[in-house]
Design a binder for these strands. Structure first.
Lengths: 225, 225
DNA sequence: TCAAGTCTTCAGATTTTCTTCAAAATTGAA
DNA sequence: TTCAATTTTGAAGAAAATCTGAAGACTTGA
């Protein structure tokens, strides 16, 4: 779960960042459009929080650039302007939500979760894939209704794969998704081998080891059909 | 695009319905939870607009029932209550958005569109050439919907050729494209022969080996009639 | 604080892909 | 037709990526 906050008011940014951090969301910060774009280019975020008034332009510019790049990150606009026209423009440009300043941090958090949930799991708390059932809240997995002993990271990995079925996920993307804390891990992918191995092993033991495929040189994917 | 409006205030409901209709959205209407549930059971909606205060219970009940049934319709809560706790509860129960009454109909419309867009977008990025489909994102190739086992370099080569169809690509250009820019490779073209051979072989086995042509003395080209 | 469970690192084994090589086949021009 | 240049081919060595088990480091809850 990784968030990018694009906001130039340092004080507000700090309080949002620390609140999100306290709620187990990894977030990064960009103070202007240019820096935001370069980060977006490098990493996959689950959600982007976008202020409209930025030193080097209007947040809408960023939104347009994003959509032109075919990026699918969810975007929540955070703005002091609350007139309907601005909102409409935001949604038209592809924003997913709009929050008016000032707002409660808890509402922001709820909206982030709603967006990520929709994006990754299509609104279900229980993600089902054929004989596999994953309860996101209870953090349990069953295969053919038999419980599967799985650790937190393994669950995150499994959910990420199933949520992006038939897409190849690069090791870099997986590393980021699992650790959040990118910098140190980006070139050391050994721990992914370990997690993949464990997940594969557990799935195989449970009798459904054929969905998780390694795509040599590119990453891993969850194969549906 | 089909919307279900669950709302007991007849007057508000009418104005929403006619506005949505005027914007080419098909909407249906339920005045209470029971009627809403039976409609949801019967039809697939893209989006449900849910008032919280309903004659036969709280809208949250409907939301819970929906998620328990594993329904994945998007839900926008429409409520006069705008305290944060209510919003949080809504999001926790799986709502996708929350709109406080009174609101502009145009904002409602924008939020509906944002939700539907998010729900339906599958982020595909495919290059198609007749029976061949290359998914750049998933990094897979299919011929007549049969997956083709292809390596990274082979995929790069194929994309390069198809992307420049009917142009003759010199071996030097291909070498540069495949190898990054390692100077030493640029005059040794043996490895291109190898890759070309493998791609040709795989395409032939898949039944479409006639597009990739050798142009003696010049290079290779992808022939589109 | 300790113990149990979890996560990450490491190094060697294995697998897959890439490049090189040399012999054979093909091509186009003399 | 002949011949030199070019391309094709299969095999093999080199390189790169992945798998594996074990060990060390970190977390967490009692």
């Amino acid at each position: 779960m990784k968030i990018l906050l694009v906001e130039d008011e340092k004080e507000l940014a700090d309080s949002i960042l620390s609140y999100l951090k306290g709620n187990e969301l990894v977030s990064e910060y960009a103070a202007n459009i240019e820096s935001a774009l370069s980060k977006i280019d490098m990493y996959d975020y689950d959600c982007i929080l976008l202020d409209l008034m930025l030193p080097d332009g209007n947040g809408f510019e960023l939104l347009k650039a994003l959509r032109k790049m075919n990026k699918t990150e969810g975007v929540i606009i955070i703005s002091a302007k609350e007139n309907v026209e601005t909102k409409i423009e935001g949604f038209t440009l592809g924003a997913d939500d709009f929050l008016t300043k000032p707002f409660h941090l808890s509402e922001l958090l709820a909206r982030i979760h709603a967006l990520i949930r929709r994006k990754n799991f299509d609104g279900k708390n229980v993600v089902r894939f054929k004989e596999i059932e994953m309860d996101i809240h209870a953090k349990t997995v069953t295969v053919n209704h038999q419980p599967l002993d799985i650790t937190k990271k393994e669950m995150m990995l499994l959910l990420y794969l199933v949520g992006n079925q038939n897409k190849v996920l690069s090791k870099a993307a997986i590393a980021e998704h699992l650790s959040g804390d990118m910098a140190d891990m980006l070139d050391n992918h050994d721990f992914i081998y370990a997690h993949i191995k464990n997940v594969k092993k557990k799935l195989t033991e449970a009798g459904c080891g054929d969905y998780l495929k390694t795509v040599y040189g590119l990453g891993y994917k969850w194969q549906n059909d």
